[in-house]
């Protein structure tokens, strides 16, 4: 029977999921604000394009990333050139894959959060002499906070559960890229039903703890 390093699996999962959420949220936040505040030609098409990773099979996203990040791919070769290191089959590749998959969820949630902020309140803040940056920090962000937290939590949950794209670009390397989801798959494949079952229970517990925690946070943040 194969040795199961639970701590390592959890650490890899946490590292990849947190990094992926951060990677996805970084462009999603300004983009969501911009989309929520502007009406332009091709808005629907852009939204459709941005939502594509949500409906494509994750394996397809993984394949495209593999092409992009491999030594021959333009991004991969650039990264090798810059850092002298390959990305493919590392935890960074897993984080990028999860980030791409979770991006539409985070973007959509953030866009709805910003759209829910009453523009008239921002006008009031501006007329009181607050700069655009100040209006964002003192009015827009606090009023959108609950929705933003919800979007991040949803994204984080999706990153923890990511499987298909991660497997394509990062493999299933214990201690390096083997996340909880990949480990469950491996244990089930090997017929280790007890181990797989235990990991499933842990996954459920983590998921429940995060959704419950977010709900409590949102209840407390209610204005």
């Amino acid at each position: 029977m194969m040795d199961l390093d639970l701590l390592s699996i959890l650490a890899v999962s946490a590292r990849i999921a947190l990094a992926a959420t951060f990677l996805a949220a970084l462009p999603a936040l300004p983009l969501a604000l911009w989309i929520a505040r502007h009406d332009f030609r091709g808005r629907s098409f852009l939204l459709g394009l941005l939502n594509l990773p949500l409906v494509l099979p994750p394996v397809v996203v993984g394949f495209l990333l593999l092409v992009l990040l491999s030594r021959q791919g333009w991004l991969g070769s650039a990264l090798v050139g810059a850092f002298g290191a390959r990305v493919i089959f590392t935890w960074v590749a897993a984080a990028v894959a999860a980030a791409v998959i979770a991006f539409p969820l985070i973007l959509g949630g953030m866009r709805i959060a910003f759209e829910g902020v009453d523009r008239r309140l921002e006008d009031a803040a501006r007329s009181l002499g607050e700069s655009p940056g100040g209006v964002f920090m003192r009015v827009t962000l606090p009023l959108a906070a609950r929705g933003l937290i919800g979007a991040l939590a949803l994204g984080l949950g999706r990153c923890v559960g990511e499987f298909g794209a991660t497997l394509m670009v990062a493999g299933n390397i214990p201690g390096k890229t083997q996340t909880l989801a990949l480990a469950i798959h491996q244990q089930a494949e090997l017929g280790h039903d007890a181990q797989a079952g235990a990991l499933v229970l842990i996954a459920v517990a983590i998921g429940l703890a995060s959704t419950w925690g977010v709900e409590r946070l949102r209840a407390r943040a209610a204005p």
Binding site: D118, L121, A124, G129, P223
Partner: peptide, 12 residues
């Protein structure tokens, strides 16, 4: 500065 007819107080 404007005092709006619909108040526009910051709810938070």
């Amino acid at each position: 500065a404007v005092a709006f007819q619909d108040h526009r107080l910051f709810p938070h």
